[in-house]
Nucleic acid binder design. Structure first.
Lengths: 233, 233
DNA sequence: TGTGACAAATAAGTCTGACTTTTTGATCCA
DNA sequence: TGGATCAAAAAGTCAGACTTATTTGTCACA
């Protein structure tokens, strides 16, 4: 779904990217372009394009006479959506989920505060609609419907903040929320307290109460941290 | 400095990247690989590699029979350090500086709180050293020395937070701080209140007072926002 | 008039092979 | 020992031929 049909180099990345981000090659490992081209049965030019992409993500470094060396995780472009998807799909999933949730706990409250100041009337309406959708789907194992409105809610907040960098976290938050519903333990209906908080955030934004919107959103993210045992209950 | 000697494709990116991120091509503009190769006097293969990199940054989209189309800014990978550098170097600098400063105001307080919990003894020592270095360079127009310790201070905080995604913002914060000192108005000595706050943050981290570290760092970032007139004074 | 199939044009995508350049590391000599 | 030189290795570059997907336009047919 993520990267289909982007040509041969994309096909190569679909398997090489996950391998590297899963840590299958220890940092400093050396790959040879020719060998990779052979392995994936593509021409050197295609392989070179794939390497260029990995290089732009700071996953590898290409140097003459030595080859393509895998970089240490600390150097990776961990905000690259593609890297995040690869990590979420592989063995590194738990840690990626944790670091993203911590990031959310920092960003979303501030974004909500800004949204209270900057949201358009239309965005306020959308927000209320999302919150009501969450309420409507909060009972009776309607997890998909709940997820849909939850994702939309957080997306509106991030967009309404007016900050382009916050807005670009919408996809990431969506994948975290989807992950929680699909992969992890989420058999039961969502916590009613969390649902209420979302409704109240929508209220606060509508009433332009930035301080309250921020505080309530912080409570939501604290809940998300607790789900992953990052905070003591 | 940023991207020297990465080969011909890197040379091409050094001029094409800034052009695109500066908004010189309106979204939807179509570039032709052949024409670009001619313009930069490189082979098609080199040009293709450059396009692949731009594509992985979501700056452009390459489609058969139509060409390389420039994407809307809302789709760019705005967390890519290279994209950030390009934008900081061009016409988009003011907005990039603002959005980064808002991001800092969200992330750094939380990072400081985590640092108070997770910092090693060595990191605590480094932090204190940085704060003292700031104090020592805070008077008499020793701006470079002050900047050096300021950057180091924030880097230690982000690293000590224990969150890999926070840690990767160190370079970005460094560029924001450097930008403030070099490009923008910063003729006078730094605000003594800000210096004191840094010393106090180091104290709070050392004493494992997460709540205080977070609150004090929030004051620091509020100051940064005010410098850019993002907050009312 | 509209619609669907078919053909042509276009630009990216791919492959191959020859060549260049940089870097490493080994060898040889002082 | 140490420094200069040389050879090998692997990425980098180029040119050209070919393939493929996609769009656009045309024409026949309903």
């Amino acid at each position: 779904m993520s990267t289909m049909g982007r040509g041969l180099h994309g096909r190569v990345l679909d398997t090489l990217g996950p391998e590297i981000t899963a840590g299958e090659y220890p940092p400093g490992s050396v790959l040879r372009t020719d060998e990779l081209a052979q392995r994936f049965d593509v021409s050197r030019s295609v392989m070179r394009e794939a390497v260029r992409v990995l290089e732009s993500m700071h996953l590898v470094e290409s140097r003459r006479r030595v080859g393509v060396t895998v970089r240490a995780k600390a150097e990776w472009n961990v905000y690259d959506p593609q890297v995040i998807r690869w990590r979420l799909a592989g063995a590194d999933r738990p840690q990626q989920l944790r670091s993203l949730t911590v990031l959310r706990s920092a960003v979303e409250p501030v974004a909500a505060g800004l949204a209270a100041k900057n949201a358009t009337a239309e965005q306020c309406a959308e927000l209320t609609e999302c919150a009501l959708g969450m309420v409507a789907n909060s009972r009776g194992h309607q997890l998909e419907g709940y997820l849909f409105h939850d994702v939309a809610f957080h997306r509106v907040i991030l967009n309404a903040s007016g900050n382009e960098m916050f807005a670009r976290l919408g996809d990431v938050v969506a994948e975290v929320l989807a992950g929680r519903t699909h992969h992890d333990v989420m058999f039961e209906d969502p916590d009613p307290a969390a649902v209420t908080l979302h409704v109240q955030v929508a209220e606060a934004v509508r009433e332009r109460d930035a301080e309250r919107a921020e505080r309530l959103t912080r409570e939501i993210t604290i809940g998300a941290l607790q789900e992953l045992d990052i905070l003591a209950p």
